[in-house]
Design a protein around this nucleic acid. Structure first.
Length: 194
DNA sequence: GGGCCGATTGTT
DNA sequence: ACAATCGGCCCG
């Protein structure tokens, strides 16, 4: 399916990251494959990460891996995690500020969860730096149908131990492509010796 | 170079 | 609750 409507612009992404994360719920993600065909689906789950947040890769400044986070808003930040999976983000806030929105779920088969989405849609580190606002990119995001604010749930972010007080996860309530019905964090690690 | 740990997922 | 699996990052 060809992209409908206009791609979301840099101005859309150059805002407070949790607001961008919330407003991306219902938007349409497109993946142009090498043969020119498109995959597409409605974004149903996101998380916000800000530079001043210890759970954000940018918290300790621009490293080789995360330097793209400090680039202009609307770029893709893709990283490899747990030796198996990739995760797809959109860079937010003005250039020079290291923030992004993690795309955790898209409507469709095998696209519930950030690792499964990238596996299913063949999104890898090769897409790091791709511009979501450029219609010729292999990845783009367009405005979707309006979403009733009451249908958007909010919670702590999944899979992190830092900054659990931040309610920066957004999801479409009851949607089957939301990664988990409730936040779940890794089991507690061994207590430090004392 | 060593060692620890992770924005996950699937199995026990 | 835990294993798989390996790159990033900090330290020395």
């Amino acid at each position: 399916m060809l992209p409908l409507g206009n791609a979301l612009t840099g101005d859309f992404y150059a805002r407070h990251t949790p607001d961008v994360a919330r407003d991306l719920i219902g938007a349409t993600l497109y993946r142009k494959l090498p043969d020119g065909t498109f995959l597409s689906g409605k974004i149903v789950e996101t998380e916000a990460y800000r530079e001043d947040d210890p759970a954000c890769h940018a918290a300790r400044g621009p490293t080789p891996r995360c330097k793209i986070l400090f680039g202009p808003p609307g770029l893709a930040y893709v990283y490899f995690i747990y030796g198996n999976y990739h995760c797809l983000n959109v860079v937010t806030e003005p250039e020079g500020v290291g923030c992004a929105v993690l795309i955790r779920g898209v409507e469709g088969d095998n696209t519930n969860g950030p690792g499964k989405l990238c596996r299913e849609w063949i999104i890898t580190r090769d897409h790091n730096g791709v511009n979501f606002t450029d219609p010729s990119s292999e990845l783009l995001i367009c405005k979707g149908d309006p979403v009733n604010p009451q249908d958007i749930g909010v919670s702590s972010r999944i899979g992190i131990s830092a900054a659990q007080h931040l309610q920066w996860r957004y999801f479409l309530k009851g949607h089957p492509s939301v990664s988990r019905p409730k936040p779940y964090n890794r089991p507690q690690r061994k207590a430090p010796a004392r």
